[in-house]
Amino acid sequence: MASPTDLHEASRAIVQTAIGNENGHSDKAKTKTPLELLSQGVCLPGIPQHPTFGEHRQWMLEKMALAFRVFARKGYTAGLAGHISVRDPEWPHTFWMNPLAVHFGLMKVSDMILVDYAGKPIGGNTSSPANGAGFQIHSAIHKRRPDVMAAAHTHSPHGLAWSPFGRRLEMLTQDVAYVYGEAQGVYNDFGGVVFTEEEGVKIGDALGPKGKALILQNHGLVTVGHTVDEACFLMTLVERCCQVQLLADAAAANGLAKTYVSDQAARYTFEHSSTPETLYWEAQPDLEWEAAMSGGAHRG
């Protein structure tokens, strides 16, 4: 599994290649990572590293609890629907999930349940049930994609409203370019609530080897990331892009023409902005706000 240092160097290579292609030659003076390009002056640091599995686990579970609180504040709650999973840093064939029937806005570290690929609770809050449909979705994704540390699924309002069309989001804005190309997929074979392994596998297959966001027709949204922060931010971004798509289509229905982001500009934006480090930092303002609003309760 790639380390934060590996991801940083990979990001630098992507930008060097993009600049070289754009200029017709490699310009070493302009070789910067996406995070360095984003930062004017002092650069934001990379994704935090932790000396022990225990410290890493506590950090990511705190971020997981905060991600749920972000979803709550943005109105993504819907009864028992919606879940986040985070792969355990020490035991990669297990992952943490949220319990059923706990409001996203109240989620804390001690609520989370560690399950294995067979669905057996093996750690954490084993006295509470996890979401059965959620397990089928998340286990399929984690099995297929060892690079995915976290996955999120919500029934957010605009994601639900866009999902019946069974179409990819159009390249209408800079934001949607973060899921350009193979980073965005659609699952068109909705078979009802995901209570079978077969349905979960189909969803994992639809996400593909490079997917970051998946529109589930008639169902909602899935996003994944190298951190729970990344998966959280991408969920908020794709939900907003669904809202923009619906608004733009409504305006177009009244005769206004849409101007699309060019393929070249979308690819450039994706390569320079949609990396594990930049997406981690994109999430921090919302997560830090929730940490402040919770008064530390998310750590409980």
Rank of each mutant, 00 (worst) to 15 (best):
E22W: 09
R167I: 00
I14Q: 12
M171T: 01
T33P: 03
P34L: 11
Q49C: 09
N218T: 02
G124V: 10
H158N: 14
L7I: 11
R145G: 01
G20P: 07
A10P: 00
R145A: 02
G166Q: 01
Q245A: 12
A101K: 11
G211L: 10
G295I: 08
A2R: 15
M60P: 00
S3N: 07
K108D: 03
L160T: 11
Q136W: 06
G295L: 09
R167L: 12
N23S: 12
V238C: 11
N21W: 01
G204W: 03
F68K: 02
M107V: 06
Y280F: 15
G24P: 04
D286Q: 13
Q174W: 14
Y180L: 01
E290V: 14
V109M: 07
A266D: 06
F165P: 00
M1F: 12
A177K: 01
K212L: 15
L247F: 15
L35C: 02
W281G: 02
P51Y: 09
H138L: 06
H103P: 10
G54N: 10
A297C: 04
G185K: 08
K74W: 13
Y187C: 03
N125D: 08
P48T: 11
E239N: 00
A29H: 14
P99S: 08
L216S: 04
P45L: 09
F68T: 00
M64V: 03
G24D: 07
K32M: 13
F165R: 15
L237M: 15
L207Y: 01
V193C: 10
A292V: 09
G159V: 11
V228R: 02
D111W: 07
G295T: 07
L106D: 14
P285G: 07
E239Y: 06
V42P: 01
G20D: 08
P276F: 07
A65E: 02
M171E: 11
G134M: 05
A206W: 04
D175R: 05
T126W: 02
R144E: 09
G159F: 11
A81R: 04
D111F: 10
A78I: 00
Y268S: 12
W96D: 07
I137W: 06
L7H: 06
T236A: 06
E90T: 00
N188E: 13
I137R: 05
A161T: 09
Y260N: 05
H158E: 10
S127I: 08
H25G: 02
T259A: 10
E271Q: 13
V244P: 00
A206D: 05
M64F: 15
A231Q: 05
F53E: 06
P48S: 11
R144L: 13
W281Y: 11
G20C: 07
K74F: 14
H153Q: 12
E55R: 09
L234D: 01
A283N: 01
